[in-house]
Amino acid sequence: MKKVYDTAFDALDGLLHDGMLIAAGGFGLCGIPELLISAIRDAGTKDLTVASNNAGVDDFGLGILLETRQVKKMMSSYVGENAEFMRQYLSGELELEFNPQGTLAERMRAGGAGIAGFYTKTGVGTQIAEGKEHKDFDGETYILERGIFADLAIVKAWKADETGNLVFRKTARNFNPPAAMCGRVCVAEVEEIVPRGELDGDEIHLPGIYVHRLIQGDHEKRIEKRTTRAA
């Protein structure tokens, strides 16, 4: 089964359609699938629902899909660095489903594991719990959260082999694996592709069975907030 494609456009061929649900990996600007996001923008796919920890910034990451009005709804836990996101949300142009960060990650992981829903105490007694099923376990109240089953997952890894086994670096490892797992099809972009058998099995963070298509590319690696101290 061929998994390695030449470009992001080629890797997404036949996968995109209006109104789809996309799970996107990354944390802030770390480990985001920037090449695949740009290819989705160029394809013009619209009315998207995107499940992601964040919405990028105004001119980078998922922010470029907001600029072109291709996103109808965001399912996120943090959106504080994107002024266009705020403008669209406050003006009623963009739907928003806020999720506690751990809940969002678990919803993705649950979808990848075939789990339709799970109960959690996170959000009980807040707006997060409104309209959701409540259930008592051992005298404690829990709310039901649904697993996320995305039409497409787009993720960014550091290294892969030709079969799609992925290795992530540091913070990029938090949302990328569960995002990859919950997609009916997963496309990954990486910095380096090595021959099969070259990766040590103990260093693989996501098995290639979850990854259907793969590209190698150059990445900008922006710093979201640069903090320095006087010399």
Rank of each mutant, 00 (worst) to 15 (best):
26 G>F: 04
120 T>D: 12
78 Y>I: 10
195 P>E: 01
18 D>Q: 13
185 V>E: 08
211 V>Q: 00
14 G>C: 10
73 K>F: 06
171 T>N: 07
36 L>R: 06
19 G>T: 13
168 F>G: 00
98 F>M: 14
59 D>L: 08
114 G>W: 06
27 F>N: 15
146 R>D: 10
148 I>S: 04
169 R>Y: 06
193 I>W: 02
99 N>T: 12
169 R>V: 05
194 V>C: 01
189 E>L: 02
15 L>K: 14
155 V>H: 05
63 G>N: 02
217 G>Q: 08
197 G>D: 04
128 I>D: 08
50 V>K: 06
138 D>I: 13
22 I>T: 08
18 D>W: 12
154 I>C: 01
44 G>D: 00
76 S>T: 13
19 G>E: 14
167 V>P: 00
128 I>M: 13
24 A>K: 10
21 L>C: 10
33 P>V: 08
4 V>W: 07
175 F>I: 00
121 K>R: 15
94 L>N: 05
69 R>E: 12
28 G>R: 03
10 D>Q: 08
26 G>S: 14
54 N>A: 11
152 L>W: 02
198 E>P: 00
102 G>V: 12
78 Y>K: 11
45 T>M: 04
30 C>M: 07
162 E>N: 03
129 A>R: 10
187 V>P: 04
69 R>F: 05
127 Q>E: 13
99 N>G: 09
226 R>F: 14
15 L>W: 07
107 R>L: 01
174 N>L: 10
130 E>L: 15
206 L>F: 00
133 E>T: 11
79 V>E: 12
89 Y>W: 15
196 R>I: 12
26 G>W: 05
38 S>E: 15
11 A>V: 12
112 G>A: 04
99 N>K: 15
55 A>C: 15
43 A>M: 07
171 T>R: 10
131 G>V: 04
32 I>Q: 06
229 R>W: 13
113 A>M: 12
11 A>P: 04
94 L>Q: 08
3 K>N: 09
166 L>W: 03
37 I>T: 14
185 V>N: 04
208 G>L: 05
123 G>Q: 01
160 A>H: 00
53 N>A: 12
155 V>W: 00
110 A>V: 02
148 I>P: 03
176 N>P: 00
192 E>T: 09
109 R>Q: 13
28 G>C: 10
227 T>N: 11
84 E>T: 10
129 A>Q: 08
44 G>R: 02
137 F>D: 12
55 A>N: 14
77 S>V: 06
149 F>H: 13
165 N>W: 05
115 I>V: 15
141 T>L: 06
163 T>Y: 14
23 A>E: 07
83 A>F: 15
123 G>N: 08
73 K>V: 04
118 F>M: 09
119 Y>F: 14
103 T>N: 15
182 C>T: 03
109 R>N: 14
105 A>C: 09
213 R>T: 02
143 I>K: 07
221 K>L: 07
113 A>N: 13
224 E>F: 00
41 R>P: 01
